[in-house]
Amino acid sequence: MKKTAALSVALTAFALSLTAHADVDVSLGSKERVTRLFAYPNNCNVICFRNWTLEQTVEHYLTQSVQRDGYPGARVSVTDDNAQLHAKISGVPDGYDKPLISLLNAGDLAYTGASKLNADGKFAYNWYLFLPLGMALENRKSVELLHFPPDYSLTQAQDYLRSATTDRWAALLTENGIPADQTPAFQTIIDIAPIAAPSNAGSDLEGVYSYFNDYQTTMVKDLSQSASGTALPMVAFGAPVRNWLKAQYNVNLPVLGLATISPTAGQSVSVIGANHPSYIWYAADKSNYGGDEDKADAAGLKVMGQDLSAACWQAGMGQTSGLDAATVLQQCTTHWQVTHKVDTCKLFYTSVRHLTPDQAAAKCRTGSVGRQLDQLRKPMPETLKTKA
């Protein structure tokens, strides 16, 4: 599985390198507009964490995008012409400006929503409007629907894909055959709340979604298809996102449930429900089970099986268009929850319990864990479902 996937991605990257040859000029708008859409300055409190100009900040995020699109030789230059900013991107195909312009136009909708939220006294002092900057703009393989970005992705990393959540999911994609340097192509993110906030702010943000309805639906419509018009698979992470899909598109989507939405008339987009990537830390917390380690491990193993299966589906659907979503999911759940359930077990103990590979292997051979592995495909306890 891994070798075939890696070869497919490598050939795609090679093909992209042969087509990147144009220069693209993009009008970004006024300095005022660019300042708010790029959250500038990203982190300045008297002393700037990175003492960048507005132009350097934009260059930083656009450079991330061209690299994640598979154009490592591309170059970005941003200039100020009478308070109007322009980006010149060399070494990319003709038309590369279109998805960037679409993102910024959607960003205007997000800014309008955030302004209304603030006018209603609901925008917290430690929140930041933060668009999904630095994503692959053109060569996307799949889309991830999430709740909100953690604040440190903006203020510390200046990288939308730098967080515990995205790092863990990237690791699961690599376990399913996607080379580590190619995972960003699968992780084009749409957060239903485009607000960088402290990691524990989830419950506070659950009441803000309606302010960003125009932004959300525009982003889903724009990103749900590739540059060639092919529908891209989506992963809906966490209960808030799956509930939002229910409200917006009238689909019921439990963990490892499948649905089809039509962001554009005549288009069918396959969506899978998944746990939030960080949910496993809650599910496997012994304090939820009165300190009972076996019960905590059993819950964690179940979530690991679900997460690996969802990442497997995402990897498979993202690499080859036209596959049957239900068939791919069945193959993935059988792989991780039946045929290779011991590998699932080892990954849980190495990545969540931080055991060595030898310790994990020994743990997965014990009788109690063996019985837990047999429970992998049984339902999650009701007390944990609401947070999944």
Rank of each mutant, 00 (worst) to 15 (best):
I192Y: 14
E293W: 06
S262D: 01
A170V: 07
T218L: 02
Q319L: 13
T183Y: 01
T339N: 13
S27N: 15
D374M: 11
V34K: 05
L103D: 04
S270V: 00
W52L: 13
V9C: 07
S8F: 06
D204K: 15
V78C: 06
L54A: 04
I261K: 00
Y111E: 14
I178V: 15
I280M: 06
L109M: 13
L16M: 07
Q56L: 05
K221H: 03
L173E: 09
D97N: 10
E55W: 05
V9F: 08
E175Q: 15
M1P: 08
D120N: 14
F237K: 10
E55C: 11
P263T: 00
S27M: 11
A5C: 10
M317L: 12
G291E: 09
D69N: 10
A193K: 11
G202R: 05
A193T: 13
A110N: 02
S203P: 01
A22F: 03
T57G: 04
Y211N: 01
T333M: 04
V271T: 01
L133Y: 07
P184T: 09
E175I: 04
A311N: 10
Q375S: 15
P179D: 05
L384W: 07
A114Q: 13
N43I: 02
H86G: 05
L301K: 11
D159S: 11
A124R: 13
A196W: 03
L133G: 01
G134E: 06
R140N: 09
L11K: 14
G273M: 00
S262I: 00
L232N: 01
L376S: 07
A361M: 09
P240L: 02
G134R: 08
D294F: 13
A326Q: 15
D94C: 04
G70T: 06
G257I: 00
S228E: 10
T327I: 10
R242F: 02
S270Q: 08
A265L: 12
T19S: 14
K116I: 09
T218H: 01
V26W: 07
A106Q: 09
L117R: 03
Y282V: 08
E32P: 02
T63D: 11
L205N: 06
R371T: 15
L373H: 03
L100I: 15
Y211L: 02
D324V: 02
F123A: 06
Y349Q: 04
V92M: 08
Q248T: 14
S309K: 02
R242C: 01
D167V: 11
Y71Q: 06
Q267R: 14
A83V: 13
Q375N: 14
S115K: 14
E206I: 05
W127T: 07
T356A: 08
S321I: 00
D324R: 01
I89M: 03
V235M: 07
K116A: 14
L103P: 03
N250D: 15
D292Q: 12
P381Y: 05
A114D: 09
A283V: 07
D81M: 12
L232G: 00
